[in-house]
Design a protein around this nucleic acid. Sequence first.
DNA 1: ACAGAATGTCAAGTATATTTTACAAACTTT
DNA 2: AAAGTTTGTAAAATATACTTGACATTCTGT
Lengths: 64, 64
Amino acid sequence: MKNLKLKSARAAKDLSQQQLAELVGVSRQTINAIEKGDYNPTINLCRAICKALDKTLDELFWEE
Amino acid sequence: MKNLKLKSARAAKDLSQQQLAELVGVSRQTINAIEKGDYNPTINLCRAICKALDKTLDELFWEE
DNA sequence: ACAGAATGTCAAGTATATTTTACAAACTTT
DNA sequence: AAAGTTTGTAAAATATACTTGACATTCTGT
């Protein structure tokens, strides 16, 4: 399922997928795929994304 | 670095690595490696572990 | 001390996360 | 409307998460 929390946290910082990708050291397609929701990133990448966006794991990656 | 929060949360539920592995559907070696800290699990596995141990991502997998 | 369970670790294989290249669609600005 | 940027998506290659099997070590109970 789509990760809209990530998408909106990124928007709140006015970053493009490309810019976030560079900040965390992955490709733009990886960020796109995570937002699109059809995959399963590693915890290290999730942590890097959280730090870049000033959020926690629970805020961006928890789901019931 | 070692994940002692996971190790102690597992101990608190009185589960062996083997039992936790079965609960979340991975091998015992995978749980062992995560606790040992020398690798980088996927977020889906982290979420499954959290649910099995009644913890959140921030509680078990956040690090400064 | 012995037996059984739990843990640590290693090597070789398989599954899948991530990259690279590339192109099309949508949105923004001039 | 044209040009530039952002996003969506796909296929092939590479890196790495995870499995399987096996053995040694430590811990627990009898």
